[in-house]
Design a protein around this nucleic acid. Structure first.
Lengths: 121, 121
DNA sequence: CAGCATCCTGGATGATACTG
DNA sequence: CAGTATCATCCAGGATGCTG
């Protein structure tokens, strides 16, 4: 049994800060989109369907600041900017994968529970 | 390398639904608080510091509906209601623990990256 | 004690227009 | 193409008061 000892509601606690990041709609999606190699801004925008330019930019800036994503601007016309996961960012794929894996394995049970409660009224 | 193949932005996708749940500030905290056994409502309110009655109630209702938490109301005066993780809820502790673990192990690097960028201007 | 109902605010997010 | 700037919106979440 893993320990959740340090409380994420303590503002200074790393777990809280991580939770805040994962909380927003886009961070996880962007990281997922970058899983298979460097991507250009417009590629990401298409890949992470529904994200606005503003949000994509903001998310990428955060990830860059946190050292999870590397930004490379090529001095060309027209501009070309590529984003890729750093080693640190890549290391996050594993626990994230574990979570998605749980969802895949157990979401059926969750859905069944919802349905049961709904039909029970 | 884990696969993040199925896209969480697809509304039907389990990963998206899980993300939505974890997205809110309280779900993860409540699950964490329930890690070491059944808790009363007021205990949880104190444990998950900062949560309002409304949010705690709402979060518990969701978790109950999803089959992650079991609610037991004892017919007494004054009322006593206990919440505990189901087996399903307990199984979520593991991937969650992995994520928190990552935060613990790497948040230092993240913070260093932030500081570096900040001082660099 | 546990928990609804109501009102209200702020910040996250989107839409739009413009630029190097 | 890859952004920046600005305005508009929406609802999660907090505050408060009441009930069984």
């Amino acid at each position: 049994m893993p320990s959740l000892a340090y409380d994420p509601y303590v503002h200074d606690c790393p777990s809280r800060q991580l939770l805040d990041r994962i909380g927003d709609r886009w961070t996880v999606l962007v990281i997922g989109a970058l899983e298979d190699g460097p991507q250009r801004f417009s590629q990401l925008a298409r890949r992470v369907d529904g994200v606005s330019q503003k949000m994509l930019t903001q998310t990428l800036r955060y990830l860059e600041a946190d050292g999870l994503v590397l930004r490379t601007a090529h001095p060309e016309i027209p501009p070309r900017v590529e984003y890729e996961l750093t080693d640190l960012g890549t290391s996050l794929l594993e626990p994230l994968g574990a979570l998605l894996s749980w969802a895949k394995d157990h979401m059926g049970e969750v859905q069944a529970s919802r349905d049961a409660l709904a039909s029970a009224g």
